[in-house]
Design a protein around this nucleic acid. Structure first.
Lengths: 245, 245
DNA sequence: AAGTTGTCGGTTGTCGACAATGTGCACCCG
DNA sequence: CGGGTGCACATTGTCGACAACCGACAACTT
């Protein structure tokens, strides 16, 4: 990246986008409690901008399901249920499985290309595990899975996957017990790489399914009783109506 | 549904949501040309509201990829390339395949349930084909595929699929040549049902893959030279930077 | 006392005006 | 005549203020 393009990229992001990115990071890192209400005016004052860009950022996060909105009432940090966790990991499974198949179908060159990426991520993951920094481990895990999905060269799937991963990370950070052991993590990811290297679709499917379903099970099994007390979260819709906004 | 709840549902949707729904319908139906610019002020005046709700609606459609935005320049109706069509149908394939697998794994009861739905959609599709109304055929086709995906009981996948189908319909309406023959359509959808009834995952995968890839091929093969002349569409980004907003 | 209705605080929803930005064109200079 | 510069226009981006709305509590009625 040369000097000019790096200069451009400084102001590339719009204000709402930067606000959304910051808030997303706060939620994913667990700095904002599930069920906590966010006020447009409060955020606007805090950030020194008007409500418009804040509002736009919040709407984005609502669409990413990290926030829940109730019309004329407010927005709250999403509280993920077991059903949500199952949905998220099932959806991740759908995308990863297809991505793997797609890569395998793309021929040996593409496979080799992705394998190189994946092995780099694997090294990084090992270093992160040895450092014991959970933040780094999450990040390396994300990078690995994204590398796999991005290997399918499908921006729509990549975008959808990014959102799902944010949700998953949020769940993980609030259910700290659910951290998988380092050995299991390394083992699973090496299985990924091996199955891809072998070009074995069926095995790949099984590896992905098993990895994600065990991860989901870890999350749903840990009784998340340590969550914050029931905040005045959006608990008031009378019928089957979905959340609005 | 009693009289009162039907009254409630009149004002259930927010203004931005209704605007987005209307615009989406216009785009999907082909009433708005690809590459055509949409002005916030013009739409606001036309609808008798201010720019705020219009702006929010446009942002939603941008996120659904039916519109393309360029900061401080405007928004345009998306122009789908062959690469887009491939992406869209690949992504649909990913979701439908997983949904089918998920339904099959849910056991005989769920399968029977979905089969009932699907057979209803099949009847409707046949009626639509006999009527020769392409609008109805599209709608019946949509209902069928949505019934399959919704059968997986995964709201995240269902939402993602809805967006993909809108994109696909938009492509179809602008490439009218690409309409599949009625026989092929009925045949494919009956194959779906049969494979699901048999609970045969591998066959289901193959049926979905084949149906969607042939549909995508129809779209990409028809040289879409009949599209509108090059509008001043967003063609001005200097480097690999994605579209913004 | 139970149910209904009125009021109130707080939040978002909408609006019109202004500022900032990017584009295209005419102009100027070499 | 070509390349760069500055201007003018159109569009979005942002702002502050007001209106509409929802939920909760209190007062009222029966």
């Amino acid at each position: 990246m040369n000097r000019i393009s790096s200069l451009n990229s400084l102001e590339m992001k719009s204000v709402p986008e930067r606000i959304a990115d910051d808030l997303r990071q706060l939620i994913v890192d667990g700095a904002l409690e599930p069920g906590q209400q966010l006020s447009e005016v409060a955020l606007a004052n805090q950030l020194g901008v008007s409500r418009s860009p804040v509002r736009e950022a919040l709407q984005r996060l609502v669409r990413e399901r990290l926030l829940v909105a109730s019309r004329n009432r407010g927005v709250w940090v999403a509280r993920f249920t077991d059903a949500d966790i199952t949905e998220i990991y099932d959806a991740r499974c759908a995308i990863e499985t297809f991505a793997a198949q797609s890569i395998i179908d793309s021929g040996a060159d593409r496979i080799a290309e992705v394998l190189t990426e994946l092995r780099g991520c694997l090294d990084e993951l090992e270093r992160a595990l040895q450092s014991g920094d959970f933040q780094k481990v999450s990040s390396a895990d994300l990078t690995f899975h994204r590398a796999l999905v991005d290997g399918a060269r499908n921006s729509r799937l990549s975008d959808a996957y990014a959102i799902l991963f944010s949700e998953a990370l949020t769940c993980i950070h609030w259910l700290e017990i659910a951290r998988p052991s380092g050995e299991e993590l390394m083992h699973d990811h090496m299985e990924f790489t091996a199955a891809l290297e072998a070009g074995d679709s069926a095995r790949m499917r099984e590896v992905i399914r098993s990895h994600l379903s065990s991860a989901a099970r870890n999350l749903t099994e840990s009784k998340h009783g340590e969550g914050p007390a029931d905040a005045p979260s959006p608990s008031a819709w009378t019928n089957g109506q979905q959340e609005n906004q």
